[in-house]
Simulated assay, not measured.
Amino acid sequence: MVEAKKGLAGKFTTAMPQPRPDGPLFFLAKLMTKMHVALYRLSKGRLGGRMDAARLLVLHHRGAKTGQPRATPVIYLEDGPNLVVVASMGGQDVNPAWYHNLRAHPEIEVDIRGQRRPVRARLATAEETTALWPQLSRMWPAFEDYKKRTDREFPVFLLEPR
């Protein structure tokens, strides 16, 4: 694993407040996410596949209430056969929507560089989170800055092959 320094994307995400789900910039953030996913898909992850040195995957999941398909780019860490993602939402006081979606519908797919694979999402135990956190924060140093913005614990998901 490449140890990352906080690069341009990490500096930007920690300097700018994340748009609140009820705020006017949230629509813009959703639009940018859709564009990011489209670029990622078209290029098979060659474009939009990294945030600084951290790798991105696209979660393909369903809305917890609506069941509608969703696609969300997230930073991930490989841990043996599993993938690890953090529901940090930039340090906001609430979990991202995809957290609730994975809890409601854990059978999902991930897209990594144009390769889709089925996985089952499960919350990491406290022990697993403690063991994984040093690797996660080395990979994406902005996680530590996000933690300073909130009192909530960031849920960590293991995405296990199925």
Results as ranks from 00 to 15, higher is better:
A131H: 11
T66P: 03
I112G: 07
P134N: 08
V156W: 05
F154R: 04
Q68N: 14
S137I: 15
L83A: 12
Y146K: 00
D151Y: 07
V85T: 01
W98Q: 03
V58H: 06
T150S: 04
G63W: 09
E109W: 07
R152I: 10
T130C: 01
V86R: 03
G67R: 05
M139S: 10
V94Y: 12
V119Q: 11
L132P: 04
A53S: 15
A124I: 05
N101V: 08
I75S: 06
V110Y: 05
H100P: 04
T150P: 07
G80L: 11
A142K: 04
V110L: 09
L57S: 09
H100T: 10
P81L: 10
W98F: 08
Q92W: 02
Y76P: 02
G80V: 13
A124N: 11
Y146S: 06
P81A: 15
E127M: 05
A126F: 05
A53I: 06
V74C: 02
P69W: 10
F143H: 08
H60E: 01
R138Q: 10
W140N: 12
W140M: 14
F157Q: 00
A53H: 15
W98M: 01
R117L: 13
D93F: 00
A131C: 03
R62N: 00
N82Y: 09
Y99D: 00
